[in-house]
Design a protein around this nucleic acid. Structure first.
Length: 217
DNA sequence: CTTGTAACCCCGTTACATCA
DNA sequence: ATGATGTAACGGGGTTACAA
């Protein structure tokens, strides 16, 4: 019997979505959370005849594992022809080979998930640091802006005292200066108001980010 | 077209071996 | 002796191919 299309499909799906159980399976399991699972009866406890022999054969030899690993390295899926051949070669039941491949795929998937998690974590930490840096920069710029505003105020006051030849000159000077400062930026950070968020918000967030990183790195 | 079955898959769990 | 960890094996539920 040929199951290649299905196997290829499943391989494709599991490579695309290695973290996800098939949707239908998730639904089925969710729906059956109350159904009691059938417990497997204990065996090979030595109470029944022949059990101890089965115990001794349980662990695969290093040689067997090597060959299985080699095959797994070539291809994670196992067609029945290859399974039978391998089983013959290893002196194992084909069912054992199939089970080994299933378990190996599960281990491989877990490892991939761990790697992915680790990469995401690193990237998240880098983003937090960058956020922190940008917030610090914003604070600096706000300081500069506030200094500039004070300077404007000073100029305005001195302009009031010193009569100018052209009445609009100080104003045009101001507006010229203001043009160098992006108005939306100026407005967004409410330099006049200096709300609490400007002084404390980003800084504390930044501290939290750093503490967070120190905690988890 | 429908139904039953075999063979495969994955997921979660269990049982057992090994090691610190 | 024992708890933690790794892994072989299993049970259940899903899909697909195929025959009747």
């Amino acid at each position: 019997m040929n199951h290649r299309p299905f196997q290829d499909h499943m391989m494709f799906i599991s490579q695309l979505y290695p973290a996800d159980a098939p949707y239908t399976q998730i639904i089925a399991q969710q729906g059956e959370s109350k159904k009691p699972k059938r417990r497997r009866s204990k065996k090979n406890k030595g109470g029944e005849n022949g059990a101890s022999e089965a115990n001794k054969k349980r662990k695969l030899s290093a040689e067997q594992v090597n060959l299985l690993e080699q095959n797994f390295g070539n291809e994670h899926k196992l067609e029945s022809e290859r399974k039978d051949k391998l089983a013959l070669e290893l002196g194992l039941d084909p069912r054992q080979v199939a089970v080994w491949f299933q378990n190996r795929r599960a281990r491989w998937k877990n490892k991939k998930l761990e790697e992915e998690y680790s990469n995401l974590k690193k990237s998240h930490e880098a983003t937090l640091l960058e956020k922190c840096r940008l917030e610090t920069e914003v604070l600096k710029l706000k300081d500069q802006l506030s200094e500039a505003a004070k300077e404007i105020q000073r100029l305005r006051e001195s302009g009031d005292r010193v009569p100018s030849n052209s009445p609009s000159s100080s104003q045009s000077q101001q507006s010229q200066y203001m043009e160098t400062v992006d108005p939306p930026f100026y407005g967004v950070f409410g330099v006049d108001g200096y709300d609490d968020d400007v002084l404390y918000g980003p800084e504390t967030q930044c501290m939290n980010a750093l503490e967070w990183i120190n905690l988890y790195v």
